[in-house]
Design a protein around this nucleic acid. Structure first.
Lengths: 101, 101
DNA sequence: TTTTCTTATCGTAAAATTACGATGAACGAT
DNA sequence: ATCGTTCATCGTAATTTTACGATAAGAAAA
């Protein structure tokens, strides 16, 4: 990209909302989150069984959701249990809520 | 991408939500929508004045928001007046609402 | 008809995204 | 110490996104 301009500074809420939205901007990730909501938690392997995607692809989506703060992983050797990050979930919820009025 | 697998079919709601989320997944577009909400409507040129971005860039963001159905353009020659698409806005709102519980 | 104003679209380039298979790291079990 | 299981990360490739300037399209005005 021709990026002559330095990064534009938006309000904190705007950036935060965009970040959450971006993480939600893929059907696989929505589906993963819905699955997590219904199960409350689950392992990577469970998702690999549910979705017709490579293990590495699932892992990549999980990473993005984790980076966005929507989920968190708990070590349960040799597995990792993923759950919704309820704290940030609430933040995201209220950001979307107030955005849509 | 190595796309050996055909496109995965998700539930309609999942696809719809991801589409809305993706459109919201950029701070500039969030800011544009917030601006539209406060003003109810505005012209492309107004936005070019507000944001330090090229006219073509603004136009591109508007196109994405329009493609996602979040805004609509009304011909007001020689300008185009953009407004929130209230019908789809409501749909998006309820999709996010039910997603977050 | 030509000019002017506004906005969209085109062409381009850099970066990010999304997918895959292969490999590596962490841990328990053998 | 080695093996097996689980998951993350690496390397790669195609596609999409995001930005820019330049150009085209549309309608009113001169």
């Amino acid at each position: 990209m021709k990026r002559s301009l330095e990064h534009i500074e938006y309000k904190e809420d705007t950036e935060a909302l965009a970040k959450f939205a971006k993480a939600l901007g893929h059907p696989t990730r929505i589906a993963i989150l819905k699955h997590l909501e219904s199960q409350s938690c689950c392992f990577t392997g469970d998702l690999v069984d549910v979705f017709p995607l490579a293990q590495s692809t699932i892992s990549q989506h999980l990473k993005e959701l984790k980076n966005a703060g929507l989920i968190q992983g708990e070590l349960k050797p040799p597995k990792i249990k993923y759950c919704i990050n309820k704290e940030n979930w609430k933040i995201a919820k209220s950001l979307f809520q107030q955005f849509f009025d």
